[in-house]
Amino acid sequence: MVLHQTRSQCSNSTNRRRFLAACGVGFFGSTAGCTTIVNSLADLALGDVNLFNETENVLTGTVTITGPGDETVLSESFELPPESDDDDTDENNDEDGVTAYEDVWTEPGTYEASVELDGDSEVQGESTTSESISIDDTSEEMLAIAFGMEGVDDAIGFIVGESLSDFAQA
């Protein structure tokens, strides 16, 4: 018997692992209150580039990252559901407002990150934005692109950090 998974099945499996890790982050964070535990568990769910939808709407668009040598290292369309307030995430919303992309950073340097939202998708009137970011440690640093996040000056904010708590402190 030959077993194989299609790309879609692998993606669903990865999404479910990320969702379970995010649930674990919430559980341990609320019961233990320990930043180290929360950050360790979040590392399982996060990638090099992470999209966080803090709005109440589904957002669709494209994220593009250009590397230090002007090569495109990430260009992906996304459909990002809103963050769920309840613990009951259904199968169509298993990512709970988060999408992660791994293996983006090719070398230390300055990267150009841009987001273009489709059609009716916008956050506080913004539908496109870009920012130059600096990545010094490609194995540790991550980028959060936060849509409608409280405490961030821009409607679509870019935050570089090494852990989930770095993103929350922005």
Rank of each mutant, 00 (worst) to 15 (best):
V58R: 10
I145C: 09
L117F: 08
N50I: 06
S11I: 10
C10L: 15
D85T: 04
D166I: 00
D48G: 01
A100V: 02
A170K: 05
E56D: 15
T60G: 06
V98C: 06
G161V: 01
E91C: 04
L41T: 03
N53C: 02
N12V: 02
T66A: 05
V160N: 14
D153H: 06
G26Y: 09
D120R: 02
G29L: 06
E112I: 06
V123S: 05
L20P: 00
L59Y: 05
T128R: 03
M1Y: 08
C34S: 07
T35A: 10
T66N: 06
M1H: 07
T6V: 03
L3T: 14
T110Q: 14
F167M: 08
E150V: 01
S13C: 04
T138L: 04
E91D: 08
N57E: 14
I159E: 12
T64W: 00
G24E: 07
E112N: 14
T106F: 00
D118W: 00
T14I: 15
P82T: 13
L3Y: 11
T36L: 04
A22F: 00
E107T: 15
C34A: 12
Q124S: 12
Q9T: 14
G24Y: 03
R18H: 08
G109H: 11
T14C: 06
N15K: 05
V160L: 08
D154M: 10
D86M: 00
V123C: 15
A146Y: 04
T6Q: 02
S84T: 05
G148K: 03
E126G: 01
G125P: 05
P68M: 01
S121H: 01
C10W: 10
G33Y: 08
Q169S: 13
F27I: 06
S75D: 11
L20S: 05
S8G: 10
V123R: 09
P68G: 14
Y111V: 05
A32T: 08
G33H: 10
